[in-house]
């Protein structure tokens, strides 16, 4: 019976029709392997200065060329991506955690607490967040912690809004009434009913936040405010490379730039795919 119907699953997002997600997943896996394995396996010093090999164009010995003090760009890009990914992940986790707590508090407590929290959210949103982020890093000395704090404190508002609006719709559902009537306190309702329902939204918000956090890390480092200049981070490398750009040395900036673009695009493609899959209605609309 079921076999006589061509089910949606078999005809829907066909492997051949949407290869982008396989490319995206493959690229992400390759980058993750490079980031994890290269520093462990390759015994080369990414900081090694070799002035005789300065500003060399891409060649077999140096596939991505060398920078103005003769460091290998490929090796440094891998190290830089490692730093940027780590900071992106931690910053995304911090911002989504802060946002979730704030959104839960606003949605669950309601009344004055809700109004105060949402006005704070509006306050944060009314300031351009890059500027505010710069203000926060300026309070610290350049370090990874400063970047994480800066991105975390400026980006929690999105997660807070998502979580609050979800809690408001959950709160009105009869099963919450039933829980209250069955003796559940606020905390138990949050733990037992709200958080499990919110988890997919929170997970999506965190994944989407990772590329954004990487952009901010690179932007801050590019401005010289993020990581200490000797540390290979993608932002620092673009900044260093920009100095020799006018001399025609395009590789020192281009490759770090591509390494920002590729993982962030890959994550977006995968998130898009996940969304289509997780929401069947959207999927059927897309198939029309």
């Amino acid at each position: 019976m079921a076999a006589t119907f061509p089910t949606a699953r078999r005809t829907a997002p066909g492997r051949s029709r949407r290869p982008s997600r396989w490319i995206a997943a493959g690229l992400l896996v390759a980058l993750a392997l490079a980031v994890l394995l290269v520093p462990a396996v390759v015994q080369l010093d990414q900081q090694l200065v070799d002035l005789r090999a300065a500003n060399q164009a891409p060649s077999l010995a140096h596939p991505f060329g060398t920078d103005e003090v003769g460091r290998d760009v490929l090796l440094r890009v891998v190290y830089g991506l490692r730093v940027s990914l780590l900071i992106g992940l931690v910053a995304a986790l911090v911002s989504v955690t802060v946002g979730t707590v704030a959104g839960l508090a606003a949605g669950t407590l309601g009344g004055t607490a809700d109004r105060v929290i949402m006005r704070v959210v509006d306050g944060f949103n009314s300031v351009p967040h890059l500027l505010f982020g710069i203000f926060i890093v300026a309070l610290f000395s350049p370090s990874a912690t400063a970047v994480v704090v800066s991105v975390g404190l400026t980006h929690w508002t999105t997660a807070a809004r998502i979580v609050r609006s979800e809690v408001l719709t959950l709160r009105a559902r009869p099963f919450v009434d039933a829980a209250v009537s069955g003796g559940s306190g606020r905390l138990r309702i949050v733990r037992r009913h709200f958080l499990p329902h919110l988890l997919p939204h929170i997970a999506l918000a965190s994944v989407l936040m990772v590329p954004h956090a990487i952009w901010h890390e690179t932007a801050l480092s590019f401005l010289g405010l993020g990581l200490p200049p000797h540390l290979a981070s993608l932002g620092n490398m673009i900044n260093d490379g920009a100095r020799s750009l006018l001399a025609g040395n395009w590789w020192a900036s281009l490759f770090p730039g591509l390494f920002i673009l590729v993982p962030t695009l890959a994550i977006s493609v995968l998130v898009q795919y996940w969304r289509d899959r997780a929401n069947p209605r959207w999927r059927s609309e897309l198939q029309l």
Binding site: P174, D177, A179, G182, G183, R188, R192
Partner: peptide
Amino acid sequence: ALIFQQPRLAVDPRLTLREIAAEPFHAT
């Protein structure tokens, strides 16, 4: 205690029937 008109809306869709029936015991 209140018994609702639509049982579908009155239970958390993520819990099993056993968890639903035992919830008041755990809550108290």
